[in-house]
Computed example of a mutant assay.
Amino acid sequence: MEIFNFSAFLQDYFKTSYHVLDSSIQKKDYVSLDLSVKNQALECFDFSVSNNLNTYINTFLFERNAKVAFGGYLEKRNLYKRSNYFNDNTLENERNIHLGIDLWCPAQTPIFSLFNATVHSFKNNTQFGDYGPTIILCHHINEVVFYTLYGHLSLESIANLEIGQVFKQNQQIGALGESQVNGDYPPHLHFQIIKDLQGNFGDYPGVCNESQVDFYKINCPDPNLILKL
């Protein structure tokens, strides 16, 4: 029996780009951002202070005359060393591989559903370094069921939400949160595609250990297969 290839399905079915930010933001307004351990500019960077990263990203955008910085899929980052949520001081258990794509832009930026969807779950994930307010949507396309996760939203985004609530494609589902509510990060969207939620509710790992990468590459394909940034 042929094994279903979720990444191939995404690549074959979605031929044009889809957006989670306002469609008026043009492709030329996006710029790729490297926050990996390979970025030498970050070697002596103090990630423990979110304002430092905020200044770095804002300067990065300003110097490139861009509106949105994006990137991070399967990126190995030192950013998570600041939080015990990802780091228990043992290298074999450290989670530092990013599983979604980040879109860095101002707080209150509207976020939209990529496709017709129902709300699977939502939650305020409040641990330091976690998602903060998070929405998970369920999609049924060509008899394939999968999920999209939107993390680091505003509290207002989940205040009146209901499980099973229907969103149409390109309908606003929420907005980005400030650092005070989004896990202590500069404002950004963590966007992730998930085939199997594995029983999770309002949450799903967005960062994994290096030993888990092979599984998550299959279960959480590159969001750029759809966003095409």
Results as ranks from 00 to 15, higher is better:
E75A: 13
K27I: 09
T148E: 02
D29G: 02
I57W: 09
F167V: 11
G174F: 03
V145N: 01
N78W: 03
T118M: 08
D203H: 10
V20Q: 05
K15R: 15
Q127Y: 08
F9R: 08
N65V: 08
S24P: 00
P110A: 12
F14Q: 10
A8N: 15
K123Q: 13
L114K: 06
F45G: 00
N160M: 05
S7N: 14
E156W: 00
Y185V: 11
Y147R: 00
L137S: 01
Q40S: 12
V49P: 00
D12A: 13
Y18M: 06
L10W: 07
W104E: 03
P133W: 01
V144W: 00
T134W: 00
Q212Y: 04
N142H: 06
Y13W: 09
L149N: 02
N54P: 01
F47G: 03
K38C: 00
L42I: 05
E210P: 05
F112Q: 05
V213A: 01
N200A: 12
Q26F: 01
I141M: 04
E75P: 09
F47Y: 15
P133D: 03
F4N: 07
S32T: 05
E178H: 13
S154V: 02
L74C: 15
D130S: 11
K217S: 06
I136N: 06
L155H: 05
K168A: 11
F128D: 04
I163M: 03
V119H: 09
G72C: 15
P187I: 10
K67C: 11
N125C: 12
N116I: 04
Y80D: 02
V119P: 13
N52M: 01
L35W: 06
P106K: 12
P223Q: 03
Q165R: 13
S211H: 06
T126C: 04
K76I: 15
D12P: 07
S17W: 12
C44A: 10
D184H: 14
F14H: 10
S36Q: 04
N124F: 10
F70I: 14
H188M: 11
L189V: 09
N58G: 03
N125W: 02
V145S: 00
N224I: 09
V144A: 00
A69E: 07
L229G: 06
P133G: 07
D214I: 08
S83L: 01
N52P: 02
N65W: 12
Y56P: 06
A117W: 09
R95D: 01
S157P: 05
F122C: 04
E162W: 01
H190F: 09
Y73P: 10
I101M: 10
Y85M: 14
Q40D: 13
L42S: 07
T126S: 11
R95V: 01
Q169V: 11
G183R: 02
S179D: 09
V166D: 07
M1Y: 08
V166M: 08
S83R: 11
Y185H: 03
T134C: 13
I173P: 13
A107F: 08
K28H: 10
T126E: 14
A69Y: 09
K38Y: 06
D196P: 04
T55D: 14
Q165M: 10
S32E: 12
A107N: 12
N160I: 00
